[in-house]
Amino acid sequence: METLLAILIDGLVYASWLFIVAAGLTLVYGVMKILNMAHGSLYAIGAYSAASLVGWYFGSGHPPWGSFALFIGGAVIAGMVTGLIIERGVLRRMYGRDEVVMILVTYGVLLILEDVTKLLWGVDAYFAYQPYGMIGRVRFSDLTFAGYDLTLIAVAGLVGFALWYALNRTRQGKLLRAVIHDREISLAMGINVTRIFIVTFIIGSALGALAGGLTAPALSVAPGIGIEIIILAFAVVVIGGLGSVGGAAIGALLVGICRALAVHTYPQFELFIIYGVMAAVLAVRPQGLFVIARARKI
């Protein structure tokens, strides 16, 4: 019973974190048809920005609660700026290329940003543990959970709701959905697709960086975290269906719970199970769980 609860909570925490990363990735794919490998770097940049801001803040003796606003805000801004640079500097020149080519393009950006983060932050790990302890711990019968982790669930819920609201209840969101549905017709209808692309990419980047910023206090920030995360996020997005935010939520839950199940029962299957689920979903429904396949007309 307790194991079950632990699996559920751990799974939910992991899923929340995955969802925030994957939501940005799937949004960008949905609108721009770019499966953005550099999303991993944005995550890393968010994490590094947050970690160094936390380090600076606690070193300077300000009231500790202010650190939250600072590191989260800092991560998001770092993500937005990087996103803007990537979109205007590289992607803009490549629009209209094949989807597979776009993967390679963003792979190139990922490689470049990997070294940029090393040059900016060095290769030693950063620890920004202070905010993690501040929320305290929560007890359920014999189990204790970090309050920070539980807060993450709420944050993910908030991000999910905000995305849903923005896409379904605002004018801009409706325009975005029109572009997702049919780019050419949207263009013909006078929607400013270029602007929508920029905005989407910045939001997607901000979400990636936000996820990185939020993880910074929970684990050590070291080179390679971006490369590790991107494949996880791919798995989540592919399971849910590329371009579907709701799908990303379900994919994140599925991966999160499966991973927690493995960690608590057969830890050696931790990684295997994530990609195993992804391969299984792709094998049965290649378009993902929540996207309807379209046939080619002749």
Binding site: L35, V100, I103, I231, V238, F269, F272, Y275, A279, L282
Partner: peptide, 18 residues
Amino acid sequence: EIFFAMLTMAFSMILYGI
């Protein structure tokens, strides 16, 4: 296309995970 790319990657990562 990308589904082939992703699925081949998933299989490779399964071996890595093991």
